[in-house]
Write a protein that binds this DNA or RNA. Structure first.
Lengths: 336, 336
DNA sequence: GATGGTTATGCAAACGTTTGCGATACCACT
DNA sequence: AGTGGTATCGCAAACGTTTGCATAACCATC
């Protein structure tokens, strides 16, 4: 294992003390221009690279930011991560990415691993399984800055970056109603997730406000992937009286339903209108293109990271929390 | 800044030395069952979490793996990252993800940041700009295990995980020829990237083997995104004698070309057949569905990470290199 | 020429671990 | 009682930095 050159190596070669070299490298005013130049030159020549681990130990804090998402593939999350990385990079931080695979077991392990790594802060979108927030509470208690994004724990007093899911869902369903749809179904997610609850609430409110009944057979619970969309659509089609519109919890589910319906020869939007959520790129690729609710994924990542960085500044109140709500936008296309 | 409990805190509370606590936690045989139990109990009670930074400093090596990709959004790379994370997680490693934004400037900065973080190893897919490999050479020289994947530097003697791009391209073009296409164009990438060169070579070889001329106006150079596909398709359509088939360097480019052609009312595959590369999920969503060459992205990530982990074992020869070539598979669909 | 004030550098402790080596205590033998 | 062996544990150095404090040299001042 070939060693890296250290500050001590430089000191020895230059007949200086390590402290002088350290100060020279950080441009401390106490050090003369002349020795600074000597140190810098030698550092360049020997390809000296500061050992961030030693620095982190000294500072009791690394310059890494922990990120936990349910799964990295899933364009929504990978786009968020991309946004996070952008601002982290600008600020000189590196991101450590973990996936919970939508299990709280792995989420807890990930949290512990990141805490053990003494990350400067964490950005997490909780798993669909998570109902107990003790592990997040622990993070807060340990004084590690935390920002939740998209899938947040409503009851937790931490900073959050979300979109107005209630309003987004409401506008989507209202749009379907304006198009004259009467039997609007919802392929929803698990009730544990706040985003699912919010979108469901928006769906229900829109129906109520238009004097339509909430029919339990039209309001499904399920997962967040294509196969869940297929399953949901299948169940809905087998109803004695199938819906004339479907509002899906997200785009993957909408795509799954879309594929199933097309396989079955169902005409979209004539027989059934379809609306998704997130505005994933591929909703614009299918024919007819899917109406969906835009969620600014990249911006969510940027804002979440920016919010976290603010907490790193000394003036920041460690316990102050802030919630950023980004606007959604209904993107009307041919599927509705 | 509330401190974390340390091994010394435990030692003080138990009236033991830090060394004994350390050994107890690592189940060292010298420590009696009884004190081990006491230590473990106290550790649990105080929520002790080992400081990986201190450990890393001691071991001169962290348990993080650095990953550099051109961009995280781009389903191919995010899927690879997902695969990497899977095996890293199993082995108790955390991944640090950076994006080069396809610039060698940022790639170099990323490499330095990861090296400064003393990552246990690096997995990188080089940027399209990169032609000078000094920074990678430096990584090797510093004894940091390195595995390149997908976009590799052919001239560099390091371990690699790639697919047989030459064969993949060849089979794609051969398929077009078998379908009776005579004027087959190629919307290619930059010649700096080995994957682009290999795919181009496969394209050319297939044409040659079938006695067809290589026409420079049919062989384009460009980028790797949708807009590059649009631009390429536009240029090809404006030719006096447009091609009757297009082989795109990758799926985003194919999708870009696809959209442009459909906008122009060009019939696919009747007027022009279209083949992509990577088998991104959305190639199966468009109508007609795109023929493409499957690249096992998730598996590439898994294999690259596994290969890297092998290098961490003590027996491993630091300088031994290995190249894993994963098979591609032509996925024939309606666009050809 | 003693005093005071800069300027430039070094000493040593600290961050939280790990580990080689030594120390202690105890027991069982002869 | 002396020897040897084993079972437990502590000391102290090390990993590569940073930083408060002390130190040394130098100059100018009264």
């Amino acid at each position: 294992m070939p060693r890296h050159t250290t500050i001590n190596d430089l000191a020895a070669k230059l007949k200086l003390s390590p402290s002088t070299v350290s100060r020279a490298l950080r441009d401390h005013p106490d050090i003369s221009r002349k020795t600074k130049d000597r140190v810098l030159e030698m550092a360049a020549k020997t390809h000296y690279q500061p050992n961030l681990i030693a620095q982190s130990l000294q500072n009791r804090r690394s310059n890494n930011i922990g990120v936990i998402v349910p799964e990295i593939r899933n364009t929504f999350f990978s786009t968020v991560i991309s946004g996070i990385e952008e601002v982290a990079y600008e600020a000189g931080y590196t991101i450590m990415v973990c996936q919970s695979a939508d299990t709280s077991k792995r989420e807890i392990i990930n949290i512990k691993a990141l805490a053990a790594n003494r990350v400067a802060g964490m950005l997490v979108s909780i798993s669909q399984q998570t109902t107990n927030y003790d592990h997040l509470q622990m993070v807060i208690q340990q004084g590690i800055p935390l920002v939740l994004f998209d899938r947040v724990a409503e009851s937790l007093d931490v900073s959050k970056v979300i979109v107005d899911d209630y309003a987004g869902a409401y506008s989507a369903v209202q749009h379907l109603l304006e198009r004259g749809r009467k039997r609007i179904a919802h392929i929803g997610g698990t009730s544990a997730l706040s985003v699912s609850r919010q979108r469901r609430a928006g769906y229900e409110a829109a129906l109520r406000d238009h004097g339509l009944p909430l029919l339990s057979e039209l309001c499904l619970y399920g997962g967040y992937h294509e196969e869940d969309g297929r399953a949901g659509a299948e169940k809905l089609r087998k109803l004695a009286e199938p819906p004339d519109a479907i509002f899906a919890i997200n785009d993957p589910v909408a795509i799954g339903a879309f594929i199933y319906l097309q396989e079955q020869g169902v005409k979209i939007p004539d027989d059934v209108a379809l609306v998704g959520y997130s505005n994933n790129p591929n909703t614009a690729l299918v024919r007819p293109r899917l109406t969906t609710v835009n969620q600014p994924a990249f911006e969510i990542g940027r804002r979440a990271a920016t919010l976290l960085l603010q907490k790193f500044t000394v003036e920041a109140d460690i316990h102050a929390t802030e919630t950023i709500v980004l606007p959604t936008e209904l993107v009307v296309r041919e599927s509705s």
